[in-house]
Design a binder for these strands. Structure first.
Lengths: 235, 235
DNA sequence: CTTTACTATACAACTATACAACTTATAATC
DNA sequence: GATTATAAGTTGTATAGTTGTATAGTAAAG
């Protein structure tokens, strides 16, 4: 019976277009006005169809900008050696990292504990966003001991890769000592950075990377947009 | 006896109004609520009268919009040289074309065969609706080889006429190589675009226009609302 | 008693219009 | 060249009006 409803027909037509890759991940759909002309209906009828697709996680919209095809959930491997770039390019996705903030300051107690440094030693904070196929998906906040890596920021700004930066600093391998995973809700700043709604579910991982002598290198937190990422564990 | 019945009297009154051109082709009637007040009856009694007029093909309705006076069947000439605008304006009717969709993509096999191009060459798809005296009557889906006419869309958006667009592109004359005519039933999207019921009969023509050197220019399909158009052949 | 014509009411689906909030592209200005 | 206004385009929201459909009820005719 649903099949006779107009909005449902439009829903099916648009869903097919996405499935047929007429609109690809990250693409903007034609505007609601264009779609309403294409289907010969009022804009609100199109919106009703779009709403279903948004609920299904196939589309998402941004006021003033457009309606965009949601990328299917990317698998992000967690384990002993987690490498961002490899994790993304592995499935032919294109990563892009942007530094949004960096600052030097004294370590907090938690940071000092995790990095096994003296309390109030100076640390470097770097906050980055990661886009996958041009869709913002990841925020990372890194705490790095400044005493050991005084030129980290300078190199990282060029390399935009922890792995490469550490190599250039003489650390050829590093592993995770632990990873905690919790769920959080996006606040307005995160929502803005991640192109998601406020209160969208985020996956937050907290971890320490250390060299092979078990000396901590970075204490970091990463937020993933739940709709776009699934974390997978391996041993 | 029938003449006593209220709904039948309303039916006759409305039919007379249409015959007397109080309501013309394409005009909206007053809403059912207004009519029910005018005749001093319940809305459903008016609807019963309207239903007969719809069955007779004199009126048609669109949910949310209103009840509209149906046009009488227009003659549309098919033959070697088919020109939409001329066909319509010939009997003092006013045509209006709207682009509802355009996209570039690879040719399907059938399209490539008909256009005599390589399979998977890029084509331009343009979908338009044609209103006659403001009543939607025609849908056309055109496939045009992009390699030969890379600026077709740009010009067509201004001209809204294939004949004019081709003239500006240096093609002063073109003819149809073949025309197939079949009957189809309107699906829900076509029904909305054409302001007709789902499963209304449509005339569908499939044809290829080619230049005088017999090189295909467009491979297209046109759907006509059966209630509003009759096709006529000439040689 | 059953059917038919008509009323009454309510809600769903869709249209029409307007405006706010926001983004993007373009032009103007420094 | 970079920054700032301006304009145009987009989604979000609200309100009102229209047809489609379902249910219940009344009165009259057979």
């Amino acid at each position: 019976m649903n099949s006779k409803l107009i909005y449902y027909q439009i829903y099916e037509a648009l869903k097919k277009d996405v499935a047929d890759n007429i609109y690809n991940s990250g693409d903007k759909l034609p505007s609601e006005n264009h779609l309403s002309k294409r289907f010969g209906v009022n804009r609100h009828t199109v919106r009703r169809a779009l709403q279903i697709l948004k609920n299904e996680g196939i589309l998402f919209s941004k006021r003033g900008s457009g309606v965009i095809v949601q990328a299917s959930k990317l698998k992000y491997k967690l384990g002993k050696r987690v490498r961002f770039s490899e994790n993304i390019t592995h499935e032919n996705n294109i990563p892009k990292i942007t530094i949004i903030r960096s600052e030097y300051r004294k370590a907090s107690k938690i940071e000092a504990d995790n990095l096994k440094i003296n309390s109030k030693d100076e640390i470097l904070l770097i906050e980055t966003t990661g886009k996958i196929n041009n869709i913002p998906t990841i925020i990372t906040k890194r705490i790095i001991p400044n005493k050991r890596f005084p030129s980290f920021l300078e190199i990282f700004q060029k390399e935009l890769s922890v792995t490469n930066t550490l190599k250039l600093l003489g650390v050829n391998d590093f592993v995770r000592s632990k990873t905690n995973i919790i769920a959080e809700l996006a606040d307005s700043i995160q929502a803005n950075l991640l192109d998601c709604k406020i209160n969208s579910p985020l996956l937050k991982t907290t971890y320490v990377n250390q060299d092979l002598n078990c000396i901590p290198i970075e204490f970091s937190q990463t937020w993933f947009v739940g709709e776009r990422i699934q974390l997978t564990l391996e041993d």
